[in-house]
Design a protein around this nucleic acid. Structure first.
Lengths: 132, 132
DNA sequence: AATACATATGAGCGATTGTTCATATACTCA
DNA sequence: TGAGTATATGAACAATCGCTCATATGTATT
């Protein structure tokens, strides 16, 4: 049975030219340190990214960011090639993910991009086309 | 049959207190302006977000960012609760999405986070917990 | 050359997803 | 109050996804 650290041991042999148990322990401690620097609950980050990763929802947020104002649900209609229902579902998912806000005005609903949404789009824009 | 702009026309009636054809045309032109400011090809952005939106791949990138150095494939093993194959698939997806780089050293492979990956994580970190 | 090893790749399976259709809710105006 | 409108919600279905297992590729060592 292959242990969890069998290969790590060999890697350290390559990197250090030697490898005793304390070398393995030290490296494992270092790796655990990286692990601990990760937010305990990733679900909100993962959800924000997932929600922004499909075309309909992504486009909605880009439109809101470009508009620099809240848009009414019906303003998305001529710009997106999906049903009203799909737009509504998309906005609902975006709101739950903290990427858009909603404001009611009579029968109309206005949505706006949150700073979180804008920060993510900005990160993409600033790094688009980077080879690496 | 409901036209694409039927509701928009009524919205403008509400917003402007009137609505003739030129009002509709103006608004449509404005909306099309937003549309045009969106990158023509979203697929690379969408893919980057999708790839970062599941736990295994996201965790890999967070580990690389925390490490501030390239990590060997075998170093992920004790930190992730999935098979070697899943780690390899994940790294391959991340590389294709431009989120990690790969460096070969003998039989070992070292991966590192790209500026694009770091920018996205940073956007998430800076805005985590924003109510809106 | 043969064996061992590190990583990669492809098929396949259960689980999740984005959409549409049907329907519900809530507001407006006669 | 009743008809019309704007948006939201739930079910359902095809499509996609993430994982594991089996196997392939390329490197090191003997």
């Amino acid at each position: 049975m292959a242990s969890q650290t069998e290969r790590l041991e060999r890697l350290l042999g390559t990197q250090l030219g030697r490898c005793c148990q304390s070398d393995v322990d030290d490296r494992l401690a270092t790796l655990n340190g990286y692990q601990e620097s990760i937010p305990a609950d990733l679900s909100s980050d993962l959800n924000a990214l997932k929600v922004l990763s499909t075309e309909t929802r992504h486009r909605i947020v880009r439109l809101l960011a470009a508009a620099e104002r809240d848009l009414c649900v019906c303003e998305f209609k001529p710009l997106l090639d999906v049903s009203d229902s799909a737009i509504s579902h998309a906005l609902s998912d975006l709101r739950e993910a903290g990427l858009v806000t909603r404001r009611k005005d009579g029968q109309w609903r206005y949505y706006g991009a949150t700073p979180r949404a804008e920060a993510i789009l900005d990160a993409l824009d600033r790094t688009r086309g980077d080879g690496e």
